[in-house]
Simulated assay, not measured.
Amino acid sequence: MDQRRMNREEERSMERCANPKISIVIPARNEARNLEVILPELPEVNEVVLVDGHSVDQTVEVARKVLPSIVTLTQTRRGKGNALACGFEAACGDIIVMFDADGSADPAEIPAFVETLVRGADFAKGTRFHRHGGSDDITALRRAGNAALNGLTNALYQTSFTDLCYGYNAFWRDIVPQLKLPPTTVPALASGGFWGDGFEIETVLNCRVVAAGLKVAEVPSFERTRIFGETNLRTFADGLRILRTIFAEHRRYRARKRSGLSGTGDLTAQEIA
């Protein structure tokens, strides 16, 4: 570990506190019925940010009715990744918790994520594949695909992740600049959004926290089934997108490592194709 990296870690540690403010960021698109159930279940935190994905139901209205203190905004482009990036920018807490609106995430697990960060991790990564974790939702096909993609990522990055494609994570807000997510203020390209705007966001985050040299700790998590509605996941199309993401992020990582730069730069849909 070089001296500059040691200094950065010491500065982050000094700025962080044992009783951090918590922001929960919830990306949602047409999740009004689910929000009626999950919002009352959330623990008391400093802030809940709902990022609406251009819903055509009463997502925002329901959220405001159920939780009057909620902060609501509309994402600038399309896709879960863009919604999360908008939420990260809007969040004011010391710690950001990524929380799905479909009812699959158990709010009772949030304290475990926070404790993991307070104890020294930069990024607390949820995992369903721990003896204390599990899933009522994942299919055999998705489980096999996740295992293959997870193994590939571990081989390329020399990591030991157990769950690559899971969206229940938490991290200190001060690492957001190092993640170098696509700028939220830039309009979509004629050919589509930026790479990282879609469901590949979990993979992008996992790759970039490693590329940035941040400390990652896994947290056991149990995934519940969606309460209402149908998932927007497309097993084969999103699986292929994640595979491309792994290779693209690794190419970027190696290129910047050779040039002596840390972290990763922004990728567009054209660069990944």
Score class of each variant (00 low, 15 high):
Gln3Val: 14
Arg234Tyr: 09
Gln3Trp: 08
Ala85Lys: 02
Leu73Met: 13
Arg142Val: 13
Cys207Thr: 11
Arg251Asp: 12
Lys65His: 12
Phe123Tyr: 15
Ile138Trp: 07
Gly126Trp: 11
Arg258Gln: 10
Ala190His: 12
Val62Arg: 10
Asp100Met: 09
Ser104Met: 12
Ala211Thr: 07
Arg29Pro: 01
Arg12Thr: 03
Cys207Asn: 12
Thr76Tyr: 09
Arg252Phe: 03
Trp195Pro: 00
Asn46Cys: 14
Phe247Cys: 10
Leu39Trp: 04
Pro43Cys: 09
Pro220Arg: 04
Gln3Ala: 14
Val49Lys: 12
Cys165Thr: 12
Asp238Ala: 07
Leu243His: 02
Asp266Met: 15
Leu141Thr: 13
His54Cys: 09
His132Arg: 15
Asp2Ile: 12
Gly198Val: 06
Ile242Tyr: 01
Leu214Asn: 04
Lys215Leu: 14
Ala170Pro: 04
Ala269Asn: 13
Thr245Leu: 03
Ser135Glu: 02
Ala112Glu: 15
Arg8Pro: 07
Asn34Thr: 07
Lys257Gly: 11
Tyr157Asp: 07
Tyr168Cys: 14
Trp195Arg: 06
Asp137Pro: 01
Glu89Pro: 05
Arg143Gln: 14
Asp57Asn: 03
Thr185Gly: 13
Pro43Phe: 07
Ala190Glu: 15
Glu115Ser: 14
Glu9Met: 14
Val186Pro: 09
Ser104Tyr: 09
Ile201Pro: 02
Gly263Arg: 04
Thr185Met: 07
Arg256Glu: 05
Met6Ser: 13
Phe99Arg: 02
Gly126Cys: 08
Ile96His: 06
Gly167Thr: 02
Met1Thr: 11
Asn82Gly: 04
Val25Asp: 03
Ser191Gly: 05
Ile227Pro: 04
Phe194Trp: 10
Pro111Trp: 02
Asn150Gln: 13
Glu9Ile: 13
Leu42Val: 10
Asp100Leu: 13
Arg234Lys: 14
Asp122Ile: 02
Lys21Met: 13
Asn30Lys: 01
Val71Glu: 15
Asn146Trp: 00
Val49Trp: 11
Glu202Ile: 13
Pro27Lys: 07
Val204Gly: 01
Gly81Lys: 01
Ser259His: 11
